[in-house]
Design a protein around this nucleic acid. Structure first.
Length: 616
RNA sequence: GGGGGCGUAGUUCAGUCGGUUAGAACGCCGGCCUGUCACGCCGGAGGCCGCGGGCUCGAGUCCCCUCGCUCCCGCCA
């Protein structure tokens, strides 16, 4: 950043960063500014590791320097200082190969203490686990630590790459409002009371969905935005109240074009910026159906096998009631299984544990069979499967001698898939089947446009209600909407959904039809999406797009266990900001202005002491 | 909304069957030390054992309640 041609602006703090001095700089005068990372006081000689964003440089203080030396004796970790001195080669044998600056040191000629520091609540310069609440409360100190700094800087590089990539292809970055109307995603909105409209509220956007489509109507052709998306739902490791997505949309485009655009971008990011090993290229494309049948999931982890096998036909004629019952009646049930090697002999208890894992996917039981050295089957249910039948099961799963076969039978395909998916992921972790260095990206396409919501007894959009059906399926909208395939696509990496998008409906008549299928009548459609429906009557172009999640991408590229590790200021699982102490109460005057009265929950709720309102 | 785990020094943790003065490491403070880079050596301070209640002669330890954090299910992306 600063070079040895000097200090043209006369910066009083530094002429160089702490990460750039090398052997060739020996003899130069240098001034460094940063934090005291560590002090090694030898009585007659003091070493300071001076840290800034760019690196660490060793500074030495010699007793000959008198006053400066005595000042250095007072230094403590995390003090902010500026040091000026000569760059010297370290004595023979005292180089530190761990540091890029390890061949040299700065011999301090002067020292300015810019700011002292309290003793930090945790050790900033040591990579030790610290309670996350404490880290969040002192996030500014946590962010001084190497791993977090690298994550945040890496994130910047990825986002910058996205901007440059899209700019070079004619995309325009456009901001859309944060204060807007409720959006049509399924999640709960964050609401903001409208002072000028008593009883009315803005909603914070769950995504810029309608705006991006309106920008297509507006003729920008290619739009993108690094957009914040807010949803008032419970947290998970990969979910936060606000997350960031690369929102993009294109006019006169096709699914193929969107996929290729994003694929090339992700190849550049993974190969050019990250240390991950990219899986198959071009990215494998699986239809939703194929992903479910092979992996039991619409976000499959392709780094390992353990693919599902369908044994429904064998089950149909089986003596085993559990199997036969699942496929009888033609209600769409199935029997499927996976073959797993390397498990040795499982105890009854271990098998029960596996059944519990499967039950989380809805399975009412788990059928386990072990393939013996001679190919014969053993297990509690082995007696139901004659030699021929057992052989057929074995062949269907491709099970080898010594493998276990696990089967789930259910009248609902979805239960079979979800249960086996959980088992598959369990074995991935237990048997370490997935290469942690690999990033296996794939596309999942051809999702159904709608799904049946069991609880509410109605049809819902799988993605959102602006998704275009496949051309050949438009007729099915009337006859059998659940069979309609949408022009819908997800980008998946190692079992994590990274992006989701679709070609949109641009014709008002088709949009109306989709609304009515999901139970929105013309009046409600007009009320909720009036602007967009009207806009579509002014020559809306065909368009489509996608919204890759940035937090999750950085998370998988950096091997972090959750997205809080790649966000500068995340919230806790209970959606609190411990550093800023938000949310918090406001003054009665503020509430008055908003025409809001608080009615506290009676049964149970967050305790609200009558504490003083903050000075705003 | 439901379930699991955790809560002991500034930090990360240990703490046996309920038993005397609650320990370790790192950090912090003081002293010594001229080539360290996890510097070393000597000494020291530091505890509402999350909060409240109960059983008990006696509770960090057992029971109940509650608060906080975290993971999972639901929800959601």
């Amino acid at each position: 950043m600063y070079r040895k041609d000097g200090n043209p602006d006369g910066n009083p703090y530094r002429t160089h960063t702490a990460g750039e001095l090398r052997a060739e700089d020996v003899g130069e005068r240098a001034r460094l500014a940063g934090w005291v990372s560590r002090r090694r006081d030898h009585g007659g000689l003091i070493f300071i590791d001076l840290r800034d964003r760019w690196g660490v440089t060793q500074v030495t203080f010699d007793p000959d320097s008198g006053e400066v030396f005595r000042a250095a004796e007072q230094l403590r970790p995390e003090w902010s200082i500026s040091v000026e001195g000569e760059v010297a080669r370290r004595p023979e044998g005292n180089e530190n190969p761990e540091l890029p600056t390890g061949e040299v040191e700065v011999v301090a000629g002067s020292l300015r203490v810019l700011n002292e520091s309290l003793t930090p609540p945790f050790e900033v310069d040591r990579e030790r686990p610290v309670d996350e609440l404490l880290r969040l409360k002192y996030r500014y100190l946590d962010l001084r630590r190497g791993r977090m700094r690298e994550n945040i800087v890496f994130r910047h590089r990825v986002v910058k790459h996205m901007r440059d990539y899209l700019d070079a292809r004619g995309f325009v970055e456009i901001e859309t409002p944060l204060l807007t109307a409720s959006t049509p995603e399924g999640a709960r909105d964050y609401l903001v009371p409208a002072r000028l409209y008593p009883g009315q509220f803005y909603a914070l956007p769950q995504s810029p969905q309608q705006f991006k489509q309106l920008l297509m109507v507006a003729g920008f052709e290619r739009y993108f935005q690094i957009a914040r998306a807010l949803r008032d739902e419970d947290q998970r490791g990969d979910r936060q109240p606000e997350h960031t997505q690369l929102d993009l949309e294109m006019s006169y485009t096709t699914q193929e074009e969107v996929l290729n655009l994003v694929e090339d971008l992700y190849v550049e990011i993974v190969e050019g910026l990250s240390e991950k090993k990219l899986g198959a290229k071009p990215f494998p494309r699986l239809t939703y159906r194929e992903a479910m049948e092979r992996f039991g999931s619409d976000k499959p982890d392709l780094r390992f096998g353990l693919e599902l096998g369908d044994v429904s036909e064998i089950a149909r004629t089986s003596e085993f009631k559990v199997f036969r019952g699942a496929v009888e009646g033609g209600a769409g049930g199935s029997v499927r299984g996976i073959a797993v090697g390397g498990l040795g002999d499982l105890s009854r208890r271990e098998v029960d544990e596996l059944a519990t894992i499967a039950s989380l996917g809805g399975a009412r039981g788990l059928v386990d069979l072990k393939v013996g050295k001679d190919g014969g089957l053993s297990g509690r249910t082995a007696k139901f499967f004659s030699g021929e039948e057992g052989e057929a099961l074995r062949a269907a799963l491709g099970a080898e001698p010594g493998d276990y076969m696990f089967f789930v039978a259910d009248a609902k395909d979805a239960v079979v898939f979800e249960s086996l998916n959980r088992l598959r992921l369990h074995f991935r972790d237990r048997l370490e089947l997935a290469d942690p260095e690999e990033l296996a990206l794939c596309w999942v396409t051809d999702f159904p446009l709608f799904e049946w919501n069991e609880d509410e007894g109605r049809i819902e959009p799988m993605h959102h209600m602006f998704t275009m059906p496949r051309e050949e399926d438009v007729e099915l909208l009337d006859s059998d909407p659940l069979k309609v395939i949408g022009q819908l696509y997800d980008l998946v990496a190692n079992g994590v959904e990274l992006a989701s998008g679709s070609v949109r409906i641009h014709r008002p008549d088709l949009q109306q039809k989709v609304f009515s299928i999901v139970g929105i009548d013309a009046e409600e459609a007009e009320r909720r999406f009036g602007a967009m429906l009207t806009a579509f009557r002014y020559g809306a172009p065909p368009h489509g797009g996608i919204a890759p999640g940035i937090d999750r991408l950085i998370m998988v590229l950096r091997d972090e266990p959750n997205i809080r590790e790649v966000m500068a200021f995340p919230k806790t699982q209970n959606a609190r900001d411990e550093m800023m102490d938000a949310p918090g109460p406001v003054t009665p005057e503020q509430l008055e202005e908003l025409h809001i009265a608080i009615r506290m929950p009676t049964r149970r709720g967050p305790e609200q002491p009558p504490r003083e309102a903050p000075n705003v």
